[in-house]
Design a protein around this nucleic acid. Structure first.
Length: 881
RNA sequence: GCCCCUGUGGCGGAACUGGUAGACGCGUUGGAUUCAAAAUCCAAUUUCUUCGGAAGUGUCGGUUCGAGUCCGACCGGGGGCACCA
């Protein structure tokens, strides 16, 4: 008696991912299932995850990112698309140089070694990637074509050189990025950082300011948040470029007028001072014979170094004694100050200050005893008594104390001032012009570093800057370099650096700057469409595949990477490499994976070094090695410094790739952060095992059965559940709602559990078996994008000969997803009081009649007639008493 | 400081265009199985309750037959930008 169930259970082995997963990956590989043919006539779908930096290990955050992309890729493939799903490496950058300095490893060796390790890790996840298109941005074949693009952009006037300030570390003799400057000191050397003027290369992204802004409106498959961030970053403002005449006897400069940019010309009668940047020509000339002013200007320039200093610096100014004349009142003179908060590189480097309408100007005026005249007041106040003292008024209202503007709205006053000044001529030009300004700056791409794409130009003393001929590309990075000395190794590599001028043949020097690594990632998506091409792109292939249908990555790239890629697409179009406007049609920004932190007495510990116990409701953590108790810290973004990282190998090793993938997609909506917990992994693992157990137990009973959904009898519930789940999962995956799709899978398994157990015991009838077989095939198919290995294993077990990866997405039966009777909730005065089960197509009157017969309704009415009955078809009934 | 997003059980989260709040999972509790445990299965699980019900989606108000969803104010959490004239 006991024997038969026991034997059955014992005969079923647990699903062993360590054996199954490598097996199925080999099967897919051998069939080259995921290698994409550009000439395949089916409709194309390009899904791409932001490629990783080869830091050495794939961590669980990558797993989440790539699992999402893979679900989409596998789903779209099953839906009959020709899917492109490539992978590569964002392989240039500083960590390789840091490793070279610390460990005496060549950056190239370090990078390629990391790539090898990470490729193996990615492969163990079972991603449906086309590995035949793989490349790293540090491959000569890749940066060769990037140099080609640079030269094309140069020809089309999209690249130029100009002097620009950089953060210079005098000990390391290197340029630092802003985030490498901590409290005004270099992060590595600790030296005080200097501002240096270097001639650097720039891409003219500002040529496209307006277009990049406008085109955001059409990116309707992008998160609203990202579009808004880009919009703010571009920062368009509309204002007036206006000239203030300088009173000649107050200035030694030849300039006769001071140009300012303002977005509030309406407040011109509230002006009480002018403020100019320390680098403004007027400031420089005034400082020539005023040592105090010169000292002040120097102090302003120094403060520009660190972000922290900027934030805390007090608003300060210095009176130049120069005066300007008010444009509408020849007897009104205003002082010109040099101020530390005015930037030379925005607008004209000069402003007029209206203290009543701007808090900063008000603080400044109060500090230096300058007049404060209110010019805009909130509607309904009394103009004679309205005053501004400590708080500026910046909102809409009505103009006061402004002569001909009095009574107007600020908007009308803006136009009136603009119109009047445009009509006045001084020095042969209008006194003002309407002007649109953008916050967006040109993209400085010069980096004084070794491990990057060399900028392909030569500097010749006689001929100037000479581009390397395209036929002479690539300009390769030299291999024999040393990092023993500070500074850029390219700069002190004579045999690489010293060349003959391509034009005159005389001695010349190569450009030793390399490109910002954001350049590398600005066009890789285009290269993937034809990575074998002996040109940056194969335009036909690029136009066929692009834009990327679904791009997935972290929100931290919302601005720079995405904006640069949008610029590159436009520039490449001008150079004839692609013919499209936008690179990414659909964008999805996934949340981070976060984890608890653990801190022992010797510093941070990794989750794998810690054992967590629950003790009387309190969680305590202990170091595995020493047994000492450690502190459980806050939940934070996984980072090397806090050591709260989970490596993909660890988890694939212990539970298998499917479990890791499944967990990363469960519970939390994909755009939100997800907390990595042991309990969560266990839950996912349990589900994987449960599905396997149920299916493999029932497999002998189902093996020879032809799948056939039930139309009647008890088995119809099985078929209804399966087809409803199929429909819902399809809709969820289209919306990238992976967590909801998983909930539907759980529901289906819950429904199938009892009948599958019955079938396994040999007690199911023919109709049920056929319905079950149909349901099980559906279950395996809808799970396959998330748990591809398990699904193949299940598919084989139930007697299917094809691979799931080669099987089309099943089609749901419309009849099975619509119920013929529905249960309507019945409310009385908006509160639910009962249910009414009625035919789906029952008309309003029938429903009303049936509702009135319900006992709850009768009691509530107590013989009276209802005031109103609201019937929302298929939804709800509300009886108002 | 400015801009944006967000707030639902012990926890992660569902709830389509205003229509049964808490799907699904985790955790917890009870039970079955077991010599015992693990695993598994079954049941319960928003709170209060006089067991009839009542309250409930950050707080307070509004619109509506009906509000987690819409509007206004406030409070908390997260993010972006930050001398941008």
């Amino acid at each position: 008696m006991l024997i038969k169930t026991d034997l059955l259970l014992m005969a079923i082995e647990r699903y062993n991912p360590r054996e199954s997963e490598p097996y199925w990956r080999k099967v897919w590989d051998e069939k080259k299932l995921f290698e994409t043919d550009n000439d395949d006539p089916r409709p194309k779908y390009y899904v791409l995850e932001m490629f990783p930096y080869p830091s050495g290990r794939i961590h669980i955050g990558h797993v989440r990112n790539y699992a999402m992309g893979d679900v989409i890729a596998r789903y779209k493939r099953a839906r009959g698309y020709n899917v492109l799903h490539p992978m590569g490496w964002d392989a240039f950058g500083m960590p390789a140089e840091n490793a070279a300095m610390q460990n005496k490893v060549h950056p190239r060796d370090w990078t390629y070694r990391n790539i090898d390790m990470m490729r193996a890790q990615l492969k163990s996840m079972g991603l449906s990637l086309d590995w035949s298109r793989e490349f790293a941005t540090c491959d000569v074949e890749y940066y060769h074509h990037q140099q080609h693009l640079f030269l094309d952009f140069l020809e089309h006037g999209l690249v130029y050189r100009k002097q620009s300030k950089v953060n210079w570390d005098p000990i390391d003799q290197t340029v630092l990025a802003n985030e490498q400057v901590v409290d005004g000191r270099g992060w590595r050397s600790g030296a005080l950082v200097e501002q240096r003027e270097l001639t650097q290369w720039f891409f003219k992204i500002t040529d496209f300011s307006q277009e990049l802004l406008e085109a955001l409106d059409d990116l309707d498959q992008w998160p609203e948040k990202v579009r808004l961030m880009q919009k703010n970053w571009i920062g368009r403002s509309e204002g007036l470029h206006m000239h203030w005449q300088i009173v000649p006897e107050t200035s030694q400069s030849d300039e006769t007028s001071l140009a300012v940019y303002t977005t509030r010309p309406d407040t011109v009668f509230g002006a009480s001072f002018m403020a100019i940047a320390a680098d403004h020509p007027l400031a420089i000339s005034a400082a020539e014979d005023n040592t105090d002013l010169a000292a002040f200007c120097d102090a302003c320039r120094r403060i520009g170094t660190s972000v922290a200093a900027l934030e805390t610096a007090e608003k300060e100014g210095f009176d130049t004694d120069i005066k300007v004349r008010h444009p509408f009142d020849p007897d009104w003179f205003l002082p010109v100050y040099v101020a530390n908060f005015v930037l030379m590189d925005y607008g004209t480097g000069a402003i007029f200050g209206c203290p009543s309408g701007d808090q900063r100007d008000l603080d400044f005026a109060n500090k230096y005893g300058l007049p404060v005249v209110a010019v805009v007041m909130p509607e309904g106040n009394d103009a004679t008594s309205f005053q501004i003292t400590e708080e500026a008024y910046v909102d809409d209202g009505v103009m006061i104390n402004s002569q001909f503007l009095d009574g107007m709205t600020p908007k009308d006053a803006f136009d009136e001032v603009a119109n009047r000044l445009e009509a006045i001529e001084i020095d042969g030009q209008p006194q003002a012009q309407r002007e649109t300004n953008y916050r967006l700056r040109d993209w400085g791409i010069s980096r004084q570093r070794y491990w990057g794409c060399p900028i392909p130009v030569v500097h010749c003393e006689t001929c100037g800057v000479i581009p390397v001929a395209k036929a002479d590309l690539p300009v390769r990075l030299p291999d024999d370099i040393d990092f023993e000395k500070p500074g850029n190794p390219l700069d002190r590599h004579p045999t690489w650096r010293d060349v003959a001028c391509p034009q005159c043949g005389e001695n010349a020097k190569r450009e030793t700057d390399t490109m910002d690594t954001f350049v590398d990632s600005s066009w890789y998506f285009a290269r993937f469409t034809a990575p074998w091409q002996d040109a940056p792109t194969d335009p036909a292939a690029a136009d066929d595949w692009l834009p990327v249908d679904q791009y997935i990555g972290g929100v931290e790239h919302a601005i720079l990477h995405l904006l640069y890629s949008r610029f590159f697409t436009r520039a490449m179009r001008i150079a004839g490499h692609v013919d499209l406007k936008e690179p990414f049609k659909g964008l999805f920004t996934q949340g981070m994976v976060v984890h608890e932190t653990y801190r022992g007495k010797d510093g941070w510990l990794m989750p794998s070094e810690v054992r967590v116990e629950e003790d009387a409701g309190r969680r305590r953590a202990f170091c595995l090695d020493s047994g000492d108790e450690v502190d459980i810290g806050s939940i934070e973004k996984m980072s090397k410094s806090k050591r709260n990282v989970v490596d993909s190998d660890e988890i694939v090793e212990s539970c298998g790739a499917d479990t890791a993938r499944f967990f990363m997609l469960s519970d939390s909506p994909p755009e939100r952060d997800v907390i990595w917990t042991e309990a969560g992994v266990d839950g996912a693992h349990r589900f994987v095992q449960r599905v396997w157990r149920l299916l493999s137990e029932a497999a002998p009973a189902l093996e020879g059965v032809e799948p056939n959904p039930a139309r009647q009898g008890q088995a119809v519930e099985i078929s209804r559940a399966a087809h409803k789940a199929l429909k819902a999962v399809g809709e969820d995956l289209e919306k990238l709602s992976f967590n909801k799709a998983i909930a539907r899978m759980h529901e289906l398994v819950n429904t199938l559990q009892a009948p599958l157990t019955t079938a396994a015991a040999g007690k199911a009838d023919v109709a049920t078996l056929a319905a079950l077989k149909d349901a099980v095939c559906i279950l395996v198919s809808i799970m396959a994008p998330m748990t591809p290995h398990l699904s193949e294993e299940c598919y084989r077990t139930i007697g299917r000969t094809k691979l799931v990866a080669e099987t089309d997405w099943p089609v749901f039966d419309q009849e099975l997803v619509t119920d013929d009777t529905i249960t309507l909730p019945v409310q009385i005065n908006g509160k639910k009081r009962g249910d009414l089960t009625i035919a789906r197509d029952a008309d309003q009157l029938t429903v009303e009649k049936a509702v009135l017969e319900l006992a709850v309704v009768q009691t509530a009415l107590a013989g009276k007639t209802p005031r109103k009955i609201i019937v929302v078809p298929q939804r709800i009934v509300n009886v108002v008493v």
